[in-house]
Amino acid sequence: MAVVFQKPKSLTDAPLHYCPGCTHGIIHRLVAEAIDELQIEGKTIGVAPVGCAVMAYDYFACDMVEAAHGRAPAVATGLKRALPENIIFTYQGDGDLASIGMAETVHAATRNENITVIFVNNAIYGMTGGQMAPTSLPGQVTQTSPYGRDTATVGFPIRVSEMLATLDGPEFIQRVAVNNVKNVNAAKKAIKKAFQNQIEGKGFSLIEVVSSCPTNWGMTPKKALEWVEEKMIPYYPLGVYKDRSANKEEK
């Protein structure tokens, strides 16, 4: 008998602090699997965000930097410019990447900074207890939108992948989800490609991972994944939004 599935070695033995059923754990594992398979652990440096994944620096076995809220793409830019041969990734949530850090995100993308960005979109601020995020759905009830997100007063959710895909800069933008086995496997493939692109010097690759937050959505882990399928994915359609190299090959 051979081991067909085990914990990847670029995760440390530290138990994850995430809530039961939180898909951060799945996404951490997918990132670590990609790092293992590409054999880049020794030269990878990760950048942790502020938010639920703030302690990602304890979980990834590679060198890690903890960034200020939203600043991970700028920190990653510094790291990559200092160590161009190393592999640099950021791991950020929706508040971090699409609200307070939107400028850093857009400009790293438009510079085609040769980094890998893992963007976890679960439509809520988790760490602070469930406030409205830039990606909260219209009508979604959160602690700071107790009557539901009212688009007339607070505007609409931001579709980050679609928006970034309008830029000439970025190499690769794909939205995936982790709500079932099929989608998790597709997410794995996308994340690996985002790292492979960096190894090949292709540039900025962002994977938006549609994710769940059972605790702050007030649902069981199972129900939360159903909500991803029924509500999140229709608003945030999965797919490749930009793949510059592929387009070049076609032409």
């Binding site: 599935f5 085990q6 951060h24 594992r29 086995v181």
Partner: peptide, 17 residues
Amino acid sequence: CAFCATMCPDCVITVER
């Protein structure tokens, strides 16, 4: 099939075949 391990957020499961 390792579907269980694929969906496990906490790396609890090892599968051999």
